[in-house]
Amino acid sequence: MTEEKWEPKVVAFVCNWCTYTGADLAGTSRLKYPANMKMIRVMCSGGIDPVFIIKAFERGADGVLISGCHPGDCHYNAGNFHARRRWTMFHQLLEYLGIDKNRLQFSWVSASEGKKFVDVVSKVVNDVRELGPFKGYKELNSEFTAVVNGLKQEVNKAEAVNG
């Protein structure tokens, strides 16, 4: 990891039907947002396990975004209601885990809200940038980081050779 110039790393868990499609719309509308965020698609926000989030922080994320369909519009009728309840609970536990509450954000972005998606991503990235790098797990995790770094170096080397 190149620590000289730190860039926030944000992971988004998004549902297939609303937010993923909303992000597609942001693309087809050629809207711009920071490249710091990478998305992991699940079928429904109701299927996002809190463990995923902790795992993401553990694996070097500085912030996490959860986004699904608006309450009442869930493709699966009620999945996002379960999600909402789960996140209300989980959010309270974050500080206990030593994670700033602002590093985990929730939003509802429908398939027609490309602009909102851009706003949400920009906000999360900005917030996380202000909070600075998340170090909590990194120190515990040096072994894993070493592996990833090794891997990256290999890739870079390969690029240098081939490029």
Partner: peptide, 28 residues
């Protein structure tokens, strides 16, 4: 939808195509 998978305390239910293992791999 996979709501059951996130709810299951023993992680004994998985959504085919979106298993915990697959998502953890993506995170990693």
């Amino acid at each position: 939808c996979g709501t059951c998978t996130a709810t299951c305390p023993s992680k004994s239910v998985e959504l085919m195509g979106f298993t915990n293992e697959q998502i953890f791999a993506q995170i990693a």
